[in-house]
Design a protein around this nucleic acid. Sequence first.
DNA 1: CACTTGACCTGTCCGC
DNA 2: TGCGGACAGGTCAAGT
Length: 294
Amino acid sequence: MPELPEVETVRRGLARLIVGRPVLDVKVYNPKSFQASSGDTQAFLVGARVVAARRRAKVLIIDLDSGYSLVAHLKMTGQLVFRGGEAWAAGHPTDSFVAELPDRSTRVEFRFDDDSRLFFNDQRKFGWIKLLPTIEVENIDFLKKVGPEPLSGDPKLVQVFLKNIRRRNNTVVKAAILDQTVVAGIGNIYADESLWAARTHPATRVRDLSDIKLRQILRAAIEVMTRSIESGGSTMKNYIRADGTKGDYLEKFAKVFRREGRACPRCGSEIVKIRVAGRGTHICPRCQKLPAGI
DNA sequence: CACTTGACCTGTCCGC
DNA sequence: TGCGGACAGGTCAAGT
């Protein structure tokens, strides 16, 4: 799925495209993809105006002037794609590659006052959108336990990150940085890219890494994700921006992810794909070595 | 507690 | 060409 940079890119698209619009109605194609208490949809969504598009970790929060919010997690294959209306037509890119909507992956469709639409497409149906009172958003289990925002600029970030990751001393570092309670937003792409940048083997135990090295890994994650947001995120297969266009982080900047068989940009060795923490993992075997003697 | 594994789904790709 | 298995950007519920 989309990881932090992709979700942030979608958030920015939504801020431009749907903030200010009143919702006219909602069409639910897959009930599990849209969760709302009975009556709430008619009372607090239909007729309500979108007032903000926020993000926490990989979760999108769309606030309405009814005191309710739409909360969305795209998981692996979710997309939020906007179609129609003047704002869209004005900045409408020509390389939008979702032909016609709704299609067979469409799970939910929101219609706005000017007949423009926001489609929630999700091939694998892992993603969800919930409608709930804005003040209860922070009580969602996932948001209660999620770690600090890496791009917040919070001066306490490093300290909190170190405290959190030391709880995972016994596991491999890739599993630790993928753990959303340690730090928010890192997924499989940026885990691999960050560990390559910090010259660390993903299967290194956290306990074998110094605080200095762990800070280096966090720094790398921040740099890599910041850069990705600047290029509109990574597009592999399913992720696209809210306006339907692809991000080009992967082709422009990725050093190891999905690049097995090609040369490491740092040392020229062949990048290999291995399995770590149950996930496909890309490394340069020369730049990223396991500590000796363990 | 914390670690690992399978489950949730659909689709695609690869080897036989 | 068909078929089975592995795998895909995430998270959670179970096991141990």
